[in-house]
Amino acid sequence: MARFGMVVDLKRCVGCNACTLACKAENGTPPGIFFTKVLEQLAGQYPIVKKKFIPVLCNHCLNAPCVRVCPSGATRKRDDGMVLVDYDQCIGCKACAVACPYKNRELLPQGKLRQGHFKGHLTPFEKVKYSKFQEGVVIKCTFCCDRVDQGLEPSCVNTCPAEARVFGDLHNPESKVSRLIRQRGGFQPMSEANTDPSVYYLE
């Protein structure tokens, strides 16, 4: 069985946020909600300053706290490693949101879907996209499961101008992700949390 994962090459990433908006466009996430972001990390003091761009998204952890704490069973893990929320079962207790060490989950509050990006006016695009969502439940990055199930790569990977994001099967030692992790010493975010993320970073 495949285990899907992503490798983010921090050397290639230029912090352009194309991924952030490719994700917005693919998923039609409501105002203020991002399934992926590009964080900047700063160190040092002028004139010796270092700035890094670090894209973050749900890590689809193998040992996912969000799955463990979910009282309703709405958050589940697929055999291929994708951690998904079943909107019909979610009771909105937000235990998963609290439990995610990466703060990758958000509640979709009441009213958001009616408000839309243009405050009270829903664009035709939003009308279509918002029909997939439910208010009062917790949402997060889906690893673009619909695209992946059709054999496409996730939207953020597809757009990345620097090709800093690579998607593939972590279980297949020959996949590009596995090779990159091996060759460039890929590491998982906050490994001390023992969540075994499916997202790896290359420095």
Binding site: A18, L21, K24, H117, T123, F125, T159, P161
Partner: peptide, 11 residues
């Protein structure tokens, strides 16, 4: 490839 502005064309 597309940059972020390219995606924002929808909006």
């Amino acid at each position: 490839k597309l940059c972020p502005k390219g995606h924002s064309g929808i909006m």
